[in-house]
Amino acid sequence: MIKCVLFDMDGVIVNTEPIGYKANQDMYKALGIIVPDSVYNTFVGNSDKNIVAKLKDLYEISLTHEELLEKQYEYYFKAFDTSDDVELLPGVKDLIIDLHSSGIKLIVASSASNAKIEKVFTRFGLHSYFDAKLSGEDFEFSKPNPAIYIEAANQSGFTKEECIVIEDSTNGIKAAKAAGIYCIGYESGLSIPQDTSEADIVITDFDQLNSNKIKGLPRTVII
């Protein structure tokens, strides 16, 4: 029986990708670089520090790694704090409440920084539902490396077979599967299109899930 759900955050719990895209494009313009969507899309699911490292590898940027990371946070937090467009994904809070009420442990394992996770959880009142919050900035390698999901499963206190992951990105799904954990791919239609073909099942609406269905995975049929 499933006893713990490991949530990605961006694109699963909250739709921050539009403001993240705008903030990053504004920063790229200020830096005098052009990052085409074909390159930008490969960043989805990566931690901020690894995205910065990739930018430094691809472009001539005079800022140090630390300075560029701070610049990225500056643009992102300004966009987050001033935007009314940041919203939870439809149905996700109802699912979170249902899972929590049924005794299923919840852990977020996000490539976002700790500061970004805290802002989202505070803004939408999510702290009380989650037992742990893991940030990609605390791991050397980003998704698709499985380290963050291996650690999340360890912190759950349950076996990998008693955990599932909900992910929306190609890199995140690859990380979950490499960690040996059952993965639900989520396609909201609101985020940058991703390849979810490696997920065990794919949903397009959180109404397709509830605590009873999740507890019965992988035997449960999700329609």
Score class of each variant (00 low, 15 high):
residue 199 A to H: 03
residue 208 Q to H: 14
residue 214 I to S: 05
residue 197 S to R: 00
residue 184 I to F: 02
residue 202 V to R: 13
residue 207 D to G: 10
residue 214 I to V: 11
residue 203 I to M: 01
residue 212 N to Q: 15
residue 194 Q to E: 06
residue 210 N to F: 08
residue 206 F to I: 09
residue 197 S to D: 01
residue 207 D to I: 06
residue 185 G to Y: 02
residue 190 L to K: 15
residue 214 I to T: 04
residue 212 N to W: 08
residue 197 S to P: 06
residue 191 S to V: 12
residue 184 I to M: 07
residue 187 E to I: 01
residue 213 K to E: 04
residue 204 T to H: 14
residue 200 D to P: 04
residue 187 E to P: 00
residue 202 V to E: 11
residue 211 S to Y: 02
residue 205 D to M: 11
residue 196 T to P: 00
residue 204 T to A: 10
residue 214 I to Q: 01
residue 187 E to H: 09
residue 190 L to A: 12
residue 203 I to C: 05
residue 184 I to Q: 07
residue 188 S to W: 12
residue 204 T to N: 14
residue 195 D to Q: 05
residue 187 E to Q: 10
residue 201 I to G: 08
residue 212 N to L: 13
residue 190 L to V: 07
residue 196 T to Q: 09
residue 192 I to D: 02
residue 185 G to P: 04
residue 210 N to E: 10
residue 193 P to V: 06
residue 209 L to A: 03
residue 192 I to V: 14
residue 205 D to G: 14
residue 189 G to T: 14
residue 189 G to N: 13
residue 209 L to D: 00
residue 203 I to F: 02
residue 206 F to A: 04
residue 190 L to F: 11
residue 184 I to G: 06
residue 190 L to N: 12
residue 191 S to N: 15
residue 192 I to Q: 11
residue 187 E to K: 14
residue 185 G to T: 04
residue 184 I to R: 07
residue 186 Y to P: 10
residue 213 K to M: 12
residue 197 S to I: 04
residue 210 N to L: 08
residue 188 S to L: 12
residue 185 G to E: 01
residue 195 D to A: 00
residue 205 D to S: 15
residue 186 Y to D: 09
residue 213 K to I: 15
residue 204 T to D: 11
residue 191 S to R: 10
residue 204 T to S: 14
residue 185 G to F: 01
residue 207 D to R: 10
residue 195 D to I: 06
residue 184 I to C: 09
residue 201 I to A: 10
residue 192 I to R: 07
residue 209 L to E: 02
residue 196 T to E: 06
residue 201 I to V: 15
residue 195 D to Y: 03
residue 211 S to R: 02
residue 203 I to L: 03
residue 198 E to Q: 13
residue 185 G to D: 02
residue 212 N to E: 15
residue 189 G to L: 11
residue 204 T to M: 07
residue 196 T to M: 08
residue 198 E to Y: 02
residue 192 I to A: 07
residue 211 S to E: 07
residue 203 I to N: 05
residue 185 G to H: 01
residue 209 L to I: 01
residue 187 E to A: 10
residue 204 T to F: 10
residue 204 T to L: 08
residue 202 V to H: 05
residue 207 D to F: 08
residue 187 E to V: 03
residue 196 T to W: 06
residue 189 G to I: 13
residue 194 Q to F: 01
residue 197 S to C: 01
residue 193 P to L: 04
residue 206 F to W: 07
residue 201 I to Y: 11
residue 202 V to C: 14
residue 188 S to F: 12
residue 191 S to T: 15
residue 194 Q to I: 03
residue 186 Y to M: 10
residue 203 I to G: 00
residue 187 E to Y: 05
residue 202 V to G: 09
residue 202 V to P: 01
residue 185 G to N: 00
residue 197 S to F: 05
residue 195 D to N: 13
residue 210 N to H: 09
residue 190 L to W: 08
residue 207 D to P: 00
residue 214 I to D: 06
residue 193 P to K: 09
residue 190 L to I: 09
residue 196 T to G: 00
residue 195 D to S: 04
residue 195 D to L: 00
residue 196 T to L: 15
residue 194 Q to A: 08
residue 193 P to C: 09
